[in-house]
């Protein structure tokens, strides 16, 4: 069944994508404390410029305010959250329970992830769970929604109506199976994809070509992930230290080639140029702008990228 152009949930994100608009999402990381104002403030900065806001789930395995509670705060502000959920910390009981919890607040989008290994975080001695993997979590969400059944087979009263998403890294190794892996996620039930940060546009376009060759772009909405560099140092760090990140030398050079006080501006420029180029790539259905601790720049990126104003989902 071709999922495009029809909606199966009340997700605003799905509605906008189905209507054929380029969608814009962004993400906010919850605070390392219980002050909800911090997450609300971040959301406020971007709420008029994005269709939905991802809330990360203890990213890089550092303990933070939980994704679900943060999503509820956003929901109560009238915004559209995307609940990120990693399988690192919860078994299938907790995962299903949290999905129901999210659905009880009518949180309508979920991004299913494996999660970074706990080694990177503040609890490297902790146990990890990995009862399911990210693909099996996708299957779980879809089963709960479409069949109205728990993994155990029992019926769910008021099944969750959640638009199911997954991440894809077009650059990770081994490159040969990146498209096969996407196909697998689609088969598992992914309806939208948010990609890893794209800096190597040529390689991304090559990946998209392979995606189109298999017709996957007609089966899943692909949102291209972008993160603006704040400095040349950040570009070098992303290139050398972050696994699965592909930052070409020219990009690092370009960042380093401008004076320090102009580097942030250059970073934004690269990001905006990327949007303009990727908009033209067949199968790219939107953008996921991850401005890490730089949320205030999202409106500018969206506007200059020609993605503003955002469509009103109520009018679609």
């Amino acid at each position: 069944m071709n999922p495009m152009r029809t909606t199966r949930t009340d997700s605003k994100l799905e509605k906008i994508l189905a209507a054929g608009h380029l969608a814009v999402t962004s993400e906010c990381g919850p605070p390392r404390g219980s002050d909800a104002e911090l997450i609300k403030k971040k959301a406020d900065l971007i709420k008029n410029h994005v269709d939905a806001i991802n809330i990360t789930d203890n990213q890089t395995s550092v303990t933070r305010l939980c994704s679900l509670a943060s999503c509820i705060h956003l929901k109560l502000m009238g915004l559209e959250p995307v609940l990120q959920m990693v399988v690192r910390d919860r078994n299938r009981i907790a995962l299903q329970s949290d999905i129901l919890g999210a659905a009880s607040f009518d949180i309508r989008n979920m991004l299913c992830l494996s999660g970074d290994h706990q080694k990177f975080g503040d609890c490297p001695q902790g146990q990890n769970v990995f009862d399911l993997d990210s693909m099996q979590l996708l299957q779980t969400v879809r089963q709960m929604r479409d069949q109205g059944k728990f993994l155990g087979g029992d019926e769910i009263k008021r099944p969750p109506r959640i638009f199911a998403g997954a991440a894809a890294n077009p650059f990770a190794d081994p490159f040969d199976i990146r498209v096969r892996r996407l196909a697998k996620k689609v088969a598992a039930g992914a309806e939208f994809i948010q990609t890893q940060c794209i800096y190597n546009l040529d390689r991304f376009e090559e990946w998209m070509k392979q995606v189109r060759d298999r017709g996957l772009h007609e089966k899943v909405y692909i949102l291209a992930g972008l993160t603006p560099f704040k400095s040349a140092g950040m570009a070098k760090y992303m290139k050398n230290k972050v696994p699965g990140m592909d930052v070409p030398d020219e990009v690092v050079k370009r960042m380093a080639g401008v004076p320090k006080d102009k580097q942030a501006e250059e970073g934004l420029k690269i990001c905006i140029e990327s949007i303009q180029r990727l908009k033209e790539v067949e199968g790219v259905r939107g953008f996921h702008i991850m401005a890490i601790e730089w949320e205030e720049k999202v409106p500018e990126i969206v506007e200059k990228g020609g993605l503003y104003p955002r469509p009103d989902p109520a009018a679609l």
Binding site: S114, K119, D133, M135, A172, D173, P174, A188, P243, G244
Partner: peptide, 28 residues
């Protein structure tokens, strides 16, 4: 390291696992 049944995760890099310490990526 994540005992994934449908791997690899995004942390597989040049045949090695993201946890470091020269651990090969099983999925590679």
């Amino acid at each position: 390291a994540k005992r994934l049944f449908n791997g690899p995760c995004g942390g597989s890099s040049k045949g090695m696992c993201e946890i470091g310490g020269e651990v090969p990526c099983a999925w590679q």
